[in-house]
């Protein structure tokens, strides 16, 4: 499973990194984010790209799992 670390990055960089990673078309990704806006934008983009997204929060950081 590929991990994408977007923590600390400003929008739209987290979504750009996610977009580039999803272009490799793997079946599962883990994306780390630390802002609500980034989390929502990443999930929105991934869902548009056909992935199912779930996330867990830990101390203000979000671990998002994307599955095809």
């Amino acid at each position: 499973m590929k991990t994408i670390d977007t923590r600390g990055l400003s929008c739209p960089e987290p979504v750009i990194l996610t977009k580039k990673a999803l272009a490799l078309n793997e079946s599962e990704y883990e994306v780390l984010a630390d802002r609500v806006t980034s989390r929502d934008n990443i999930i929105g983009f991934a869902e548009d790209a056909g992935y199912k997204a779930t996330y867990v929060e830990n101390n203000g950081e979000y671990k998002i799992t994307l599955k095809k």
Partner: peptide
Amino acid sequence: TRLCMVGGFRDLFLFKQ
């Protein structure tokens, strides 16, 4: 809403959003 005048065109160009 995260309203942003620049973000509007940027997201359209980058993500078709």
